[in-house]
Computed example of a mutant assay.
Amino acid sequence: MTQEEHIKQLLDRYINDLSTAEEKQELMDAIDSRPHVDWYAMLASSFSEQGADKNFTPERWQPVLDSILGYRQEEAQKKPAIIRYIKSWWAVAAMLMILLGAGLWLFRGKNTIKPDPMKALADISPGSNRAVLTLQNGQHIPLDSMHGNIVLQGNLHVKNDSGALNYSGQATAAAYHTLSVPRSGQYRLQLADGTRVWLNAASSIIFPTSFQGDKRTVSITGEAYFEVAKNPSKPFIVQVGQMDITVLGTHFNINAYSDEPDTRTTLLEGAVRVTAGNHMTVLSPGQQVRLDKNNALTVANDVDVEDVIAWKNGYTVFENADIETIMRQVSRWYNVEVVFEGNMPKRHFAGTISRKSSLPDLLKILEFENVNFSIEGKKIIVKP
């Protein structure tokens, strides 16, 4: 019997609740010891023969992952954890998609899971479509409770629907509006010129109701992704802190949170000119310019742009990220306070998780990487 056939046999016994403790441990150790194996490709053929549904999504395999993690939590109390990097768990997740696609729910709830101190966080939901529009006269319009045409000024129409704010028509006189997205929120915006903007949690944009003159200028805080409508005669300028990004028509992402060590502009398509003080650089697709707190510009090449904009597509991606970076994103998306106790070891993690995942699920994954937490209300205390 080949190793592949043996693993399939172990997996089949596990999902049918026939495994001995030794077989369960052998299966988990096989997965842990081979983090770069494409488990999906390796196992999909055997399950497809059983008529497995191939429409695998994180939402569908998440409950199965919970069950596996529950078993691993018990085992972790018996001996030191084997896993050292989050990336190995995404190989496990790929395998779990197969299980759920085949409708194999047999083992859910069969393992006895000890009381979980993170249940205090169970009522904290992931972020959702939430934002407030502030008009020039100071009026605040909560967009999660008002829908349809919310502003009618002459030929200007502002429609709010399904997490998106749409400006159309021409205002008789340009006024400035502000779209503010709170922590644990996200929102989309289409400007009057057709430019589309996605705002991440704890972000904002100030923009005119119509672009007049020879430039189109907006300013942002936080993180935003732009798909700029082309207009060669009227450049589009994004102002963010001490930096200006000038484009004619392009796709790019700006991460400018004040609690991050630098401001990052990543180009996906077209070209942008980035100016900060006396420094200027022009980006090509796949490049990222970074402005640090000392106003020094550096350019990184061959950036994985899909990882950069994963937040826009419903995922959070960590690539060589330390625990402080990860927890800053957790704090913004779940609207919780994060406190670090003591000096954090210099470790880096990699992985992908759906932004729809619950906060306890995400923290459980980190716990299996020997990251320790204590919970006080909505405060997460991270310990070495």
Rank of each mutant, 00 (worst) to 15 (best):
E4V: 11
E5T: 14
L11P: 06
R13T: 00
Y14F: 15
I15Q: 13
E22C: 01
M28E: 00
A30G: 00
S33A: 15
A41Y: 06
G51W: 10
F56P: 00
K78L: 13
R84M: 02
W90A: 09
V92P: 01
A94G: 14
M97Q: 13
G109T: 11
P126W: 09
S128P: 03
A131S: 06
V132W: 10
T134K: 15
P142G: 08
L152E: 12
H157L: 10
H157V: 11
H177D: 15
T178S: 04
S184H: 08
R188H: 11
L189G: 03
W198F: 11
A202F: 05
I205D: 04
F207Q: 03
I220S: 03
F226T: 02
A229T: 12
P235A: 02
F236L: 05
H251A: 13
Y257C: 08
P261V: 05
G286Y: 11
N294A: 12
N295R: 14
I309W: 07
G314M: 09
T316F: 14
T316A: 03
A321M: 02
A321N: 12
V336Q: 07
P345Q: 06
G351Y: 08
G351E: 06
T352S: 13
T352Q: 15
T352H: 06
L359M: 10
K364V: 02
P384M: 01
P384T: 01
